[in-house]
Simulated assay, not measured.
Amino acid sequence: MTNALILVDVQRGFADPSWGRRNNPGAEANIARLLASWRGPLVLVRHDSTEPGSPLRPGQDGNRFTPELDGAVPDLVFAKSVNSAFHGEVDLDAWLRGRGVTGIVLAGVQTNMCVETTARVGGNLGYRVRVVLDATFTFDLEDLSADELARATATNLRGGGFAEVVTTDDVV
């Protein structure tokens, strides 16, 4: 089985205070650990926001990848403007299948948005999906804390049969 590591939206703009309180302050260190140990296809996905005030808009410093990705040598880099990495500028499914990839390992931002949506679509497409939960983070949303949202994502992905939820140690 060939696995690809897909890092979703690991961008500077998520440090903007407008997002609110986040969880998992160790996510970036775990992303760096994944990168340091990974031997296989590496995909970096960037969110190009179409919202006028977003720090993730193209051309803004917040659209750039975080320093943890400096020095990474990805096999594919592309942008998307929706939640799923399978609906971006590149046909990710075709790219993965063309390289014999049957499993994907996901990490990045936000746990309950783009990471979860990418995992769900990947599961629907038949990939063995593993979400490295401790290498993701999210923000408080309405009446749920970021930690509650991350737990709900883990439950949804496992319970729905979309993905395995793993730790960085499991992958490394």
Rank of each mutant, 00 (worst) to 15 (best):
R21G: 10
V129Q: 15
A119G: 12
V131M: 14
N30A: 05
P55M: 05
A150T: 11
G122W: 12
G71C: 07
A146M: 05
Y127C: 14
E116W: 00
I104M: 10
V77Q: 12
R33N: 08
E89G: 03
A135E: 04
W19V: 10
A119N: 09
M1K: 03
L125W: 01
V10L: 08
G126L: 09
A94H: 12
R151D: 13
S49I: 08
D70I: 01
L5Y: 00
A154P: 15
M113V: 14
G108C: 07
N30S: 03
N24S: 04
T167H: 04
G108P: 13
D61E: 12
N30I: 08
G53D: 15
A15M: 02
P52N: 00
V165P: 11
N83H: 12
V82E: 05
L7I: 05
H87Y: 11
L42D: 01
G53Q: 08
Q110T: 14
V82Y: 02
N124T: 13
C114S: 10
T167E: 08
A154Q: 05
E89S: 11
S18M: 15
C114K: 05
G98N: 04
V82T: 14
R120G: 03
T117L: 12
R120L: 12
L42E: 00
I104A: 04
G59S: 02
A79D: 13
C114I: 02
R21W: 00
L149M: 10
T136P: 06
D75T: 01
N112S: 12
Q110S: 12
V77M: 06
V109F: 11
F137L: 12
E28N: 09
L96M: 09
V77E: 09
F65C: 06
P52M: 00
Q60T: 11
R46G: 02
